[in-house]
């Protein structure tokens, strides 16, 4: 009996469904076109992109956890990458200090966004939208002013090549080496997943963030400093956006104004497909990773089939709308069943 229950719980877990779907689609695409199983040309880049997009998904997830949105994730990433790039180019910093500068800038931007939201009581959507607007101008302006026609910082700090091109294959313990498909880029993403997962699953702070998102007034009456929690959520969001921005710059090999311009949709796709509520109060950290990988498998699979970028967008949009409608239908069924019980 209890095994049946456990089985049912496993089967109804969105993450299991998503993983099955992802793996299934992966195999399907591979069977249709064996080029899809190519380690160097498909899987490695897929996982490397997945690493970046997972982090940006987590950035959005932090804002979603308190029931807010961050439309400026992409631009925060761009500004952070700009800061890191400048640090490498002008101050010749080494890899880690440069990265830290980027993270600080991203965190500061998120902090400012949160502060404006709390102080002005204007909704997060419009604050981050306007911020996106303003930062877009700022980023382009700085690149053009400082680098002229190149519009990029191209100084590569020592170790950047290692992170963008190598895999865990480099590391061997007792003769057993890591898999070749595992990009080094996945390491920071996994660290981010573990830290964010730990924050929301285990810590008091995470619990307080979620309760703020679940019911702001109840959280306030339970003695939780909701304003500080909102600011923190946005700070974390900015911090993770910054990490994603620098990771993308590493992957690309240069720091440009276009970093982050494609981040907005994926930042929502990952968490929403993974089961994070848009209204706040519940997050799925691992789900964000799986959701992101699902979208990438679809994208990569279709492009290996020779189907153009345009169809990818159509497919992703449909996936998003279907996932949302299904969630809504499921909720309706639950309410009906509950009514039946009382």
């Amino acid at each position: 009996m209890s095994t049946v229950l456990i089985m049912r719980r496993i089967v109804s877990d969105q993450r299991v469904v998503l993983t099955t779907l992802t793996v299934g689609l992966f195999i399907y695409f591979g069977l249709k076109n064996s080029a899809f199983f190519s380690t160097d040309f498909v899987i490695y880049p897929l996982l490397r992109d997945g690493a970046v997009l997972t982090v940006i998904g987590l950035a959005q997830l932090c804002a979603l956890s308190v029931g807010h949105l961050n439309l400026a994730v992409g631009r925060m990433a761009a500004v952070a990458a700009l800061a890191s790039g400048a640090a490498y180019q002008y101050w010749h910093l080494s890899l880690i200090p440069g990265l830290l500068i980027g993270l600080c800038v991203g965190g500061a931007l998120g902090f400012v966004a949160g502060l404006i939201i709390v102080k002005s009581q204007v909704n997060a959507f419009i604050v981050t939208l306007a911020m996106d607007f303003a930062l877009l101008g700022f980023v382009t302006f700085v690149y053009v002013t400082f680098t002229g026609a190149t519009a990029a910082f191209i100084t590569k700090p020592k170790g950047m090549e290692f992170w963008r091109n190598t895999s865990l294959h480099q590391y061997c313990i007792g003769g057993v080496c890591g898999p070749k498909v595992f990009p080094m880029m996945l390491v920071p993403a996994i660290v981010a997943l573990i830290l964010v997962g730990f924050l929301y699953a285990k810590t008091r702070l995470g619990r307080e963030l979620l309760s703020t998102g679940s019911n702001l007034r109840a959280a306030k009456l339970s003695g939780i400093p909701v304003d500080y929690r909102v600011i923190m959520a946005h700070t974390f969001s900015g911090l993770l956006a910054a990490l994603a921005g620098v990771m993308l710059a590493f992957t690309n090999g240069s720091f440009t104004a276009s970093i982050g311009s494609q981040f907005m949709l994926p930042s929502f796709l990952g968490p929403v497909l993974g089961g994070t509520l848009l209204v706040g109060g519940s997050v799925q950290v691992l789900g964000t990773f799986i959701g992101t990988m699902l979208t990438l498998v679809i994208r990569q699979g279709l492009s290996v089939q020779g189907i153009g970028l345009e169809t990818l967008n159509i497919a992703l949009g449909l996936v998003l709308l279907t996932a949302l409608s299904l969630g809504q239908i499921q909720k309706m069924f639950t309410t009906i069943r509950m009514r039946g019980q009382t």
Binding site: A130, G137, V144
Partner: peptide, 14 residues
């Protein structure tokens, strides 16, 4: 620079 426009407008909206 064209970027000045979006910077200004963003700040004004906010």
């Amino acid at each position: 620079d064209p970027s000045i426009v979006s910077l200004t407008v963003g700040i004004v909206v906010l």
